[in-house]
Structures are given as structure tokens and as C-alpha cells.
């Protein structure tokens, strides 16, 4: 087998093993929920017989290990348990909400690349001068600001005061702007900082001097030669921050009443619908694993040195 394929196969196997382990951890975590789930779900005023029947039908009388195996067997068949609020399989409700979350995170990554990389390049070009200082200070500030507060400020200013953009829901593409900006802010700062550092390093290297002596302009060198080398660390930052993106999306979705799976998760927790909360958590982890796989693949594609290895 080709080394690259072997590498890929090993990575996928590892991801599957980890996914299985995470499912186990999440199951036992959620089995720690205090109180009588059946009594809560049956609602106030229900008789003991009704509660007992519900508990039996949910399989809550079985030993935890039996419940665990049933859970895993169910997952393998695409059965995510029964939502007590929707009284049905929660999967359709979750799937229905995936596109909104995907749009939000994809837009955030897009904004990160479009704003973060140029900001870092500009800072590096004007190293130790005013634009560099301004960008570096903004980076420090952005890393300290909580995304949900930034979201609140954007909401307050652009939606409530100016009325330019919608304040909640995913009704139009314009609605995507504020939530994705709030979510991306931290990533933009990290990418700008990384790009600035790498670019300053790269600009001092021999190939840049060669290109200069060949008569190439500064902008051409930056865009044609340096940028290529900057892409790899940028990709690393985005890859490392995938966890932040997914976790942050939960908070941002809540703030903007965004119809994604993060909002669903918080709703489910509020209604003690733990089957849904658990299913969404598992989905988040699987998404995380898949994105990390993609990042590793992109590495190999972007960096020829890794292709040989």
C-alpha cells in the first residue's frame, strides 16, 4: 500500500477508536444525571404506576452496563435514543439543524482567512510601525473579549440601534454576518498573530533576498512566495481551534437564536431532554474528529515535504 494511503487508513482507524471511547465517556457522564428521570418526564401529577411504566419502557430499570451496550448497539444502527420532548427519534430534528451550524462555522472560517491573513501580512510589512502596532493591540484586545459579549455589542449596535441587520434567526444570508463575525473574532486574532510572526521570519530568509535582487516587487514577493509558506501555520491554528469553533458556536447560536444544533443542545438541557443533549454532544465530537482528519489531509496536500514522509 502507498505510504499516504496507509497513513490515512491508520488515522481513520484511530479516529474510530477515539469516537468509540468518547461515546463511552459521554454515556457514563450522562448516566450520572441526578434525580429520577422517569418521574421528571412523566410530569407532575402522574401516578406511581405511570412513572414505573415509563421507567420500564425507557429501560431505566436495567443495570447500567446493559443500558450502555444497548446504547452503543443503537448508535451503530443510527438510533440516538428517544427524545422525551419530541416523543420520537431525535435524529431528524438534529439533521434538520446541521446546515445552520455548518453555515455559521464555515462563514467564521471564511472571515478568519479573509481578515486574519491580510491583517497579519500588513502588520509584518509595516513591522514596528503604526499599522503593526494597531493590529497587534487589536489582537491582544480581541483575545480577551468573550465572543458572546462581542456578539451582544454587534447586535446592540447594528441590529437594535441602526437596524441594518437582523438580530435573530437564519432568515437571510445577511443574518449570517453578525454571528459569524462574533464567532470568528478570536480566530481572526490568532491567525493574524501567527501570520505576522511567520511572515516577519520569512521576510528575513534568503529566498526573499533572491527574489528582491531579481527585481520582484515587495507585494509580488509577499503574495507569490511568502504567502505560500504562511498557509501551513494558519491551517494549524484553524485546526487547533476547531474545538473552540464548535464550542463557541453553541454560545453564539444561543445568543442569536440561531437554528443550529448548539441551540438545540442548550434547549434540550433546559428541558432535561438528555437523549438529545447526548446525541448532539456525540455529533460534535464526531464533527471534531472529521475536521481534524481533513486538516491532516490538507497538510499533506499543501506541504510537499510531508507527502514524502
Amino acid at each position: 500500500m502507498k505510504p499516504a494511503l496507509r497513513f490515512l487508513a491508520l488515522r481513520i482507524l484511530r479516529a474510530i477508536a477515539i469516537a468509540f471511547a468518547v461515546v463511552t465517556i459521554i454515556f457514563f457522564l450522562f448516566s450520572l444525571v441526578p434525580g429520577d428521570q422517569a418521574a421528571y418526564l412523566a410530569g407532575p401529577g402522574s401516578t406511581q404506576a405511570e412513572i414505573d411504566r415509563l421507567r420500564e419502557s425507557l429501560g431505566l430499570n436495567d443495570p447500567v452496563l446493559i443500558q450502555y451496550f444497548r446504547h452503543v448497539a443503537g448508535l451503530l444502527q443510527g438510533d440516538f435514543g428517544t427524545s422525551e420532548v419530541y416523543k420520537s427519534d431525535p435524529l431528524p430534528f438534529i439533521i434538520e439543524r446541521i446546515p445552520a451550524t455548518l453555515a455559521l462555522t464555515a462563514a467564521a472560517i471564511g472571515l478568519t482567512v479573509v481578515i486574519g491573513i491580510p491583517a497579519g501580512l500588513i502588520a509584518a510589512m509595516f513591522h514596528a510601525r503604526l499599522p503593526d502596532l494597531a493590529i497587534s493591540v487589536s489582537v491582544v484586545a480581541l483575545l480577551a473579549v468573550p465572543n458572546f459579549w462581542l456578539g451582544l455589542l454587534l447586535l446592540s449596535f447594528f441590529s437594535v440601534q441602526l437596524g441594518w441587520l437582523p438580530s435573530f434567526g437564519f432568515s437571510s444570508p445577511a443574518a449570517l454576518i453578525l454571528p459569524s463575525l462574533a464567532l470568528a473574532a478570536r480566530l481572526i486574532a490568532l491567525v493574524a498573530r501567527m501570520t505576522r510572526g511567520v511572515t516577519i521570519d520569512e521576510l528575513g530568509k534568503d529566498y526573499v533576498r533572491t527574489a528582491r535582487s531579481k527585481g520582484l516587487g515587495r507585494i509580488t514577493i509577499l503574495l507569490r512566495h511568502v504567502l505560500r509558506n504562511v498557509m501551513i501555520p494558519t491551517l494549524t491554528v484553524i485546526g487547533l481551534q476547531t474545538g473552540y469553533l464548535l464550542g463557541g458556536s453553541v454560545v453564539i447560536e444561543r445568543l442569536f437564536a440561531w437554528p443550529g444544533i448548539g441551540d438545540l443542545m442548550i434547549n434540550a438541557i433546559g428541558q432535561r431532554d438528555y437523549a438529545v443533549a447526548q446525541a448532539v454532544t456525540i455529533l460534535f465530537v464526531i464533527a471534531f474528529l472529521i475536521i481534524n482528519l481533513i486538516v491532516e489531509l490538507l497538510y499533506v496536500l499543501i506541504n510537499p515535504r510531508m507527502r514524502a514522509a
Binding site: V22, G247, F288
Partner: peptide, 8 residues
């Protein structure tokens, strides 16, 4: 544990 996003 590292594969479960911190916030989640």
C-alpha cells in the same frame, strides 16, 4: 478527552 471540544 482532548477530542471532546472544551466548551462542549
Amino acid at each position: 478527552a482532548l477530542t471532546i471540544p472544551n466548551m462542549i
